[in-house]
Amino acid sequence: MSMPEDYLKYPERHYGMDHDRYDWSDLFQRAPIVWPNGARIALSIVTHVQHFPLDMPSKPFKAPGALSMPYPDFRYYTNRDYGNRVGIFRILKLFGEKGLKASFAINGIIASRYPALLEAVVQGGHEVVAHGLDMGKVHHSGLSEDDENAIIAEALSLLREASGQQVEGWLSPGRAQGFNTPDLLAKNRVTFGLDWANDDLPYEMRTKNGPLIAVPMAYETDDRVVADEYFQSEADWVQQVKDRFDVLYRESEHYGGRVMSLPIHSWVSGMPYRIEYLREVLDYILSREGVWNASAGEISAAFREIGQTA
């Protein structure tokens, strides 16, 4: 047995990345960033708001959190929907008490299913980020450009109309993309994305339709990942988020500003037994000097502005 000759050929083996989306860059060698008002840390809270269709397909893959019991899966369909009915309001209340501004990454279909939810997010002064159409519509390279564009356009149009916001941010279901996704996002007037997990600062991605800013969103301290993939306790989640913040905060003294992202889910952190852990994390971060709480869009805009004047 042997493999075809091509298996030992490496056409992209050259300096830098093996694709054209962005250049390699060392976080610790970049010109230091100072956030607005001299802040050291930009705190980006991103709440996932999701709809898992009862008939969601399992091919080519399911987004994390997908229904997993035999059809009809009453169990997880309703558990996820709890976040939209109850959990998110618990989270909104907490943000309101603390005067925080957050991004809410919302499946487009939520705008037509639950307009009251959209209204509450907008009235709370928060930013709406498009989170694809629904959790069954994952983006992947098997989709035609037209089909993928239609999903993106529909999600954005639903959310733009319902929120009255420009909705320039994007988070794919399951953070999954195809080869064309960044090009299509830029074509649909998306200016920043949260899918790529390779940095602690924003950076610019190239697309066929102009630049797209990649805004950092942590992967391994996401509340769902810690709870449902690592099966770790709430206290363990709190500890890791605090530890993450401490290191980024320490680095910001010598290396310039950092982004501390806090990805949470309405059906995870919005649970009664979890909400006070979220409060603990927020209290900890906000007790430090030099923390700028902003939406992901404001962080992206600030980054672009700094980039232009640097």
Binding site: M17, F61, H140, Q177, A197, N198
Partner: peptide, 24 residues
């Protein structure tokens, strides 16, 4: 990759090591 190429979440997660993690 578990997902069809490009598996951008897993790819970018690994790329984190070469942009940020190695220095720490």
């Amino acid at each position: 990759w578990a997902r069809p190429n490009p598996d951008v979440l897993q790819y970018s997660h690994r790329d984190y090591g070469n942009r940020a993690g190695w220095q720490r």
